[in-house]
Every structure is written in structure tokens, then in C-alpha cells.
Amino acid sequence: MSVLLLAISTTRATAVRSAADFLLEHGEDVALLTVESEPWQREGIDPRVRIYPLQAAEKRHLFARIGNAVRRLSPAAYAKGYLKIYRLLRPYVLWRVTRAGVGRELDWTAIQQVVVCDSHAIPIGWHLAKRHPNLTVGFELDRTSYRESVPSALPETADA
């Protein structure tokens, strides 16, 4: 695998699909780290893109289980209190489940670049950059290494 795309939601699905298609055309392996895989399949992501969903691991996390208990006991307390707190904690939860699951599955020596595709993926990208200092992490795909050499514009002339 050479490029890991981080897209927690499908808000920038067109841009993510475009980057994935570009990389696949250039023979690169592409992976997508997201919460759910089904919306990406509906958005038409290429089936060759390996998708790593975080949803099941997020649901098993302690904070999510506490949320389920609060919702069963008091739906009003869940809606008015717990959801506000969980929105603040969710980036932390997503990083923890990434580190414990996908982070251990991936071969970090084979990944050349990590692309943070939406604002919700910034915390995961930051943690990955901190954890792997030699890894290129950015907001846009660095296409410079994929540019083909451009032939010179001037034709060669034969000596007369």
C-alpha cells in the first residue's frame, strides 16, 4: 500500500474518489480509513480501494457503550447532555480505535503518504504524523512524484 486516505465522512466524496482514481491509474495501492464503508460504496469508490471502517470498533469503545446505557435510561439526558460531550470526545475515540485496530494492521513502512481528506480526520492525521515522523501527511495528494516527464516543446531540426 502506498497511500492512505483519511475521510471520516463523505462530505468530500468527489475529491476522494478523484484522488483514489488518479492513484489507481498510476498503479498505486490505495486504502481509505473511514467510519462506514457502505456510504463510500454508494458514492462509487473504486472496489480496488481497500476500506478500513471504524464503526464497529467505535461502538465497542467504553464511551460509546456508556452512551448506549444513558440512552436506554434517559433519552432526554442522552440528547441534551451526552451527545454534546461525545461530540468533543469523538476525535479521541476515533484515534484510539484507529491506533488499536487499523494502526496495527497496516504496514507503515509501505505507506508513502497519508492524505487528510476532511476536517473530521485532522486529529487522526495529526496523531499519525506525530507517531510516524518520516511519513508524509498532508491535506492534498502530492502529485509531483506521479508526473510524467514532459517532452520538450521544440522539435529537433536537422542540420541543412
Rank of each mutant, 00 (worst) to 15 (best):
L89I: 05
I122E: 02
G81F: 09
N68L: 10
G101A: 04
W108P: 02
A110F: 02
T10H: 05
V16G: 01
R12E: 11
V3I: 15
G27E: 13
Q41K: 15
G67T: 10
F22Q: 10
I45M: 14
R17Q: 14
A129L: 13
W108R: 06
H61M: 07
E43S: 11
S152F: 08
S119H: 00
E28R: 15
R42V: 04
D21Q: 13
I124C: 02
P155R: 09
H127Y: 02
D29T: 14
R147N: 12
A15Q: 09
T11F: 00
F22G: 04
A76S: 01
T10G: 00
Y92I: 09
M1C: 12
D159T: 13
L83C: 05
W95S: 05
P47I: 04
V49C: 03
T14L: 03
Q113V: 11
H120W: 10
T10D: 02
A76Y: 06
L5R: 03
L23K: 07
L4Q: 06
P91H: 08
G103I: 12
E36C: 04
E58D: 09
I51V: 14
R50P: 03
A129S: 12
Y92K: 12
R143T: 10
I85S: 02
D142P: 09
L154V: 15
T98V: 04
T10N: 00
S74L: 11
T11H: 06
S119K: 08
V102T: 15
S152H: 03
Y146V: 08
L88Y: 11
Q41L: 14
W108G: 08
V49N: 03
A19K: 08
E58R: 05
L141N: 08
Y146R: 13
Y146P: 08
D142I: 09
H26R: 15
D107E: 12
L141P: 00
R71Q: 13
V97A: 08
A121Y: 05
H132Y: 15
A20L: 06
E38F: 13
I66C: 00
